[in-house]
Design a binder for these strands. Structure first.
Lengths: 225, 225
DNA sequence: ACGCCTCTTGACGCGTTCTTGACGACCCCG
DNA sequence: CGGGGTCGTCAAGAACGCGTCAAGAGGCGT
């Protein structure tokens, strides 16, 4: 189903994860040092990478950075430390998820599935979204409110696209930031607040009481037609 | 529906793509080295080629060049590298699209569809386009503004043609550059700005406030009669 | 060889868009 | 009732894309 590259210098963990991943129908390739990992990420075209930060040869974040120079594959970072310095740095460099050791195999599998699902959704086309108040035509990049055409900026379109990919579903801040501003913007900023605000002013009948672009505090936003 | 030539030296990828493409109603032929690819492109008359740059026998760009000597079939290039050197070179040589590994199969299918659609549109005849202010007769290469005949340069005609093929639709800068200046001009330049400007001065009632040739910032232009 | 037309290319100003920081309102929790 | 956190709002400066101009190169016919 998906090809997973697992990078860790502990053979036991490598073995455990390989078995679990294969049992769930994945194709697994492994690497036990940074250099091999970078090469494999480039050449084996994995759908997702599980990367332990504590490698013998290269600093974990350095591995991540190098992978990022050749690929936009989703990376799930493992770390033994609770210290969040690494975490922040990893997310800055474009890690997609972060798991602290010790972790349950089931949890990791779930995160792998989530990462694959997300990356599959990127790039999928959306047609037209209609509400009683406005219409969004993504392929033509046209938006009308009460039959009158309005202009949206490129970033506004990208945000709407990320939201409308799953209409009615909650989309996490993290995912929104990534798909609109790129993998390096995985954490807090007020981009979302500013642009959500702008979209509401342009699209909502009553921007003060949004009915379509709903905030889920602490989590993200939800778009309901 | 469409015949697709897939060129890759990785049998797994070849297999995956073949299955996916066939599942979507395409006819698939494959090649696993450069020489075979060039021959197949010439003899099997594919509607689109998916070409991996990392081939064992020939440099990928060399394959592309040779294909281009015998055919103008759209080529979608695959590469493991994110480094844009290859990308720029490939686009210069006339690749139509560029996908970095790893990629989602859905994304690639979408790009195949887009390439086929685009190439189907090129060469289609357009008759006459009329607005209340001017008339464009493409088959006769005649343009009149307020009943008075005016002259348009060849490049201006080609640009208008690319725009009028789908009246009212957004046409991406990338597509405009390719169909007017050729496949090697797939990226940034100010050709479009200069010529859009010139066309507006010749055709629009009020060139400062264009009503027919509309800019979509960051994306392209739209022609509305 | 000359002049004209077209295409190419760089430079510049302008308006729009993006980014960033600040601040107040609100909510949850202690 | 107070504190911490999150959200919405605003505004200013930076960055970006577009329109505009003009000079020069190249092609073509005369």
């Amino acid at each position: 189903m998906s090809r997973v590259l697992v990078v860790d210098d502990d053979p036991r963990l490598l073995r455990t994860l390989s078995i679990a991943l294969r049992a769930h129908g994945n194709d697994v390739v492994t690497a036990s040092d940074g250099r091999t990992a970078v090469l494999s990420a480039a050449e084996d075209a994995p759908d997702v990478v599980i990367l332990d930060l504590g490698l013998p040869d290269l600093d974990g974040t350095e591995v991540l950075r190098r992978i990022r120079t050749t690929s936009s594959v989703p990376v799930i970072v493992l770390s033994a430390r609770h210290e969040s310095d690494d975490k922040i740095e990893a997310l800055d460099l474009g890690a997609d998820d972060y798991v602290t050791k010790p972790f349950g195999v089931e949890e990791l599998l779930a995160r792998v599935r989530a990462a694959v699902r997300r990356s599959g959704e990127v790039g999928r086309q959306i047609g037209t979204v209609r509400t009683d108040h406005f219409t969004l035509d993504f392929s033509e990049r046209r938006a009308t409110v009460e039959q009158a055409e309005i202009r949206l900026t490129p970033t506004e379109w990208r945000l709407l696209e990320a939201l409308c990919r799953e209409p009615g579903h909650l989309v996490l801040q993290q995912d929104l930031l990534r798909s609109v501003w790129g993998p390096a913007y995985g954490r807090e900023s007020n981009y979302l607040r500013v642009y959500a605000n702008q979209l509401r002013r342009k699209l909502e009948p009553d921007p003060g009481n949004p009915r379509h672009l709903i905030t889920e505090p602490g989590l993200g936003y939800r778009f309901t037609p």
